[in-house]
Amino acid sequence: MAQLIPIKVTVNDTVYERQVEPRLLLSDFIRHELGLFGTHVGCEHGMCGACTILFDGEPVRSCLIFAVQANGHQIKTVESLGSPDHMHPLQEAFHEKHGLQCGFCTPGILMTVVPFLEEHPHPTEDEIREAIDGNICRCTGYEKIIESVQAASEKMSSGK
């Protein structure tokens, strides 16, 4: 019989207590145990970036972490940013600049960019390109994603 380990994880400021099999991937835990479907799974080998979340504030691939490793840690997913009626300035910028098409990679990109903009409030285009280089987008060709991040940085630094 598989081991079951009790864990206590804070996701988007809510504390969850669950029993998990050690092999359960954090991405599957977030999606299927907690029902937070905004985190997407594109490759399960750490290459596409769709499942990027914040783990104690750091952007990481949730497909390369076991849920059991999140015990005692703080997690943020795209659901923590904004709602359709009250979007985060970054989400607003993506909407205004057409920074998404199918939207499947988008949550991972947003969760990569949120801490990036905290560290680089006035990023150059090259810095943005490099920051999102670990997130594959098949639809946009990235140009409008980069414009979105630029626009977001302006919005956020002017406090709008």
Binding site: G46, G49, E58, P59, V60, R61, L64, I65, G134
Partner: peptide
């Protein structure tokens, strides 16, 4: 080495 998200972990 890999991408930033990989290096974070």
């Amino acid at each position: 080495i890999g991408h930033a998200q990989i290096r974070r972990r």
